[in-house]
Design a binder for these strands. Structure first.
Length: 278
DNA sequence: CCTCTATGGCGAA
DNA sequence: TCGCCCTAGAGGC
């Protein structure tokens, strides 16, 4: 369940449960065993997120870098944790016995110990994170404005707007009535300013609620207001994973195609305002 | 039971 | 552009 808002929530959760506390680390699955042994008994100095990357800092230049990828998950427990089941990469617990708090990491694309130089390298590949206070949307704009790639592809590019994933991508394009295949270089600066501000708002709301809700009832026609639109991820969306269903605003069937290995969803009527495609 | 899917990203060709 | 890596839950038979 990993778009940027999820990762920022995870960082907050790790901090709430483990910051400043002596911890135990293990890797029941074995693939993080040597590293877990090194971390065992250490105090978590702090967890933080940038885009979809999560960092757990244990001091002494020992930081766990986690990227959940498509399949990764973190589950938290209060009180005695369940016996490890399945492929449990990293279990972090408080050092009391039985542990008061547990965080179980499964299925990540990346779970590795990194030093400051490696952290710099990772951050160096990322654009401005809409969820970070100091982020400047104009940095993303400079890449978008000169690119011939489709805006739908650019939004998924972590060098442009890290933390944005397939849901925010589809919903942002819908909310701004943009044809997904339109080349980035055709986007207007004013349009991007509005998109960036919207993204910052939407993602902060995502951090607060743990969901991606993009539908605003006041934008819906009366008749469409009560159609079911809650996706499995728990949020209310206009087009994401709604292929073949009627657009909430105009009733046209939502379309889907594959773009760079990912499913893209859009309403060809609402998002085709006669702009040149490429 | 089996098959499909998923909010991601890498590296080879 | 392709294949591949990571895992669990949903749905079909």
């Amino acid at each position: 369940m990993p778009e940027g808002h999820t990762i920022h929530r995870l960082a907050a959760e790790y901090n709430a449960r483990f910051r400043g506390v002596v911890t135990r680390s293990s890797s029941p699955q074995g693939r993080f065993a040597a590293e877990a042994a090194q971390l065992d008994g250490r105090v978590l100095a702090g967890a933080w997120a940038y885009g979809k990357h999560l960092f757990c800092d244990f001091g002494d230049n020992l930081t766990v870098h986690i990227h959940l990828g498509l399949l990764g998950k973190v589950g938290f427990f209060s009180g005695p944790p369940p016996a490890p089941v399945g492929a449990l990469r990293w279990r972090l617990t408080t050092a009391d016995d039985p542990p008061q708090c547990t965080a179980d990491l499964r299925g990540p694309t990346a779970c590795e110990l990194v030093d400051p130089a490696q952290i710099d390298r990772i951050l160096g590949q990322l654009g401005p994170d809409p969820l970070r206070e100091d982020s400047d949307g104009d940095l993303a704009w400079h890449r978008i404005r000169k690119s011939r790639r489709p805006i739908a592809a650019l939004l998924m590019d972590q060098q442009i707007a890290p933390g944005v994933g397939n849901i925010y991508r589809a919903e942002l394009l819908y909310r701004h009535r943009l044809e997904p295949m339109m080349a980035g270089q055709l986007l207007k600066y004013r349009e991007w300013q509005a998109m960036w501000a919207d993204l910052v708002d939407l993602m902060h709301e995502g951090v607060r609620t743990g969901r991606i809700d993009t539908v605003r009832a006041e934008h819906l026609p009366e008749a469409m207001g009560r159609l079911p639109r809650v996706d499995r991820h728990g949020g209310e969306v206009y087009v994401y994973r709604r292929a073949g269903m009627p657009c909430l605003v105009c009733g046209t069937k939502v379309r889907t195609t594959e773009l760079e290995h990912r499913n893209l969803f859009w309403c060809n009527k609402c998002q085709n305002i006669g702009r040149r495609r490429r």
